[in-house]
Design a protein around this nucleic acid. Sequence first.
DNA 1: TTTAATTGTTGCTAAAATACAACAATGATA
DNA 2: TATCATTGTTGTATTTTAGCAACAATTAAA
Lengths: 186, 186
Amino acid sequence: MIIGNILIIDDESINSETIKDTLEDVNYNVVLAQDAAEAKTIVKDQVFDLVMMDVWMPGQDGMALLEEWMSEGFSMPVVMMSGHAEHQDVVKAIRMGAVDFLKKPLHDILPLVRKLLSEQASIQEQQISGIDFDLPLKAARNIFESQYFKYHLEENNNNIAKVAELAGLERTTLYRKLKDLGIDKK
Amino acid sequence: MIIGNILIIDDESINSETIKDTLEDVNYNVVLAQDAAEAKTIVKDQVFDLVMMDVWMPGQDGMALLEEWMSEGFSMPVVMMSGHAEHQDVVKAIRMGAVDFLKKPLHDILPLVRKLLSEQASIQEQQISGIDFDLPLKAARNIFESQYFKYHLEENNNNIAKVAELAGLERTTLYRKLKDLGIDKK
DNA sequence: TTTAATTGTTGCTAAAATACAACAATGATA
DNA sequence: TATCATTGTTGTATTTTAGCAACAATTAAA
């Protein structure tokens, strides 16, 4: 029973084979790629829940591939890995869209992967559907707040207490706001 | 003729004094803070084009202050500085909203600052489309309002009276709000 | 069934936001 | 230069929002 699909891009076989074995023991499907070219071919045909990519590789390096993928709107979450990277590389990778940057050698790969996967599961598109800035502030703000609360209610099974906590609002105040905004909890 | 306002938060005086001197020689206004508490007091009254903050400081450390500010919807760009930080600290800072993470000792501070400021200038010009719903309501709301006001200021040649009218706000209240939100009309 | 926990409504007060007013400072015009 | 209009700062009154508290209603657990 496969519980997740992971692509590991790393030219160091010992490294990636070890990770692959560990993860497969607990029902993850792990695919290995030795370099960027191979990875590009693989992702054409398969979807992964997580891509773990080494920075230093022969041929195209990990940072360049990350940049190429992100500029193409690559949708799978990518984690970078490196034994020694400069701060600027870390900053650059995160700004380009990597979801994390791990230092090798990796320790406790299993909880690490679980954490990464659960983070991704909870990230939602949080786009604000076009708010009309041409409205007076109060009206525009109400629309914003409506969207904010609707999002959180959805994320938390309409649990008011929880949403209030997340919003940093007093619980009973939230009841009033929802009523004022015309939001029916349902 | 001041061309930019910069706050440097660092307990190492030699370091920050050197940077201050260099930048002041080329017409930047530089304010120093020795620690987080002092910085918090300063930003209440002044708006900066750039905040450069050391990670390791007595009292509240830079990462904690960054988190505090970001959770409040702090709008000035913050750059973190550290002599030695783990990858995870870099990742965390960037994800919290720091605009960069520099390794100390800093080299060639001038082109660095110019690059950071020009990056920020171009970011300001873009309409930020995504607001992080994972922030507490108050912080998210502040970000929303910042965007709202920046949009209207731009559309109306920074005319406060006009923007207030469009927003349905009392004119002088808008001055207070812009100050609270850290928006420098310029 | 009883008890405990959670959810929802509402009164009241504290805190925050905003309006009103005054006036200084700055800019525009005659 | 004098006058008028606009912009910006600030004190205070008013309004709005949010927190605290109480308790009813509903749901969950023993």
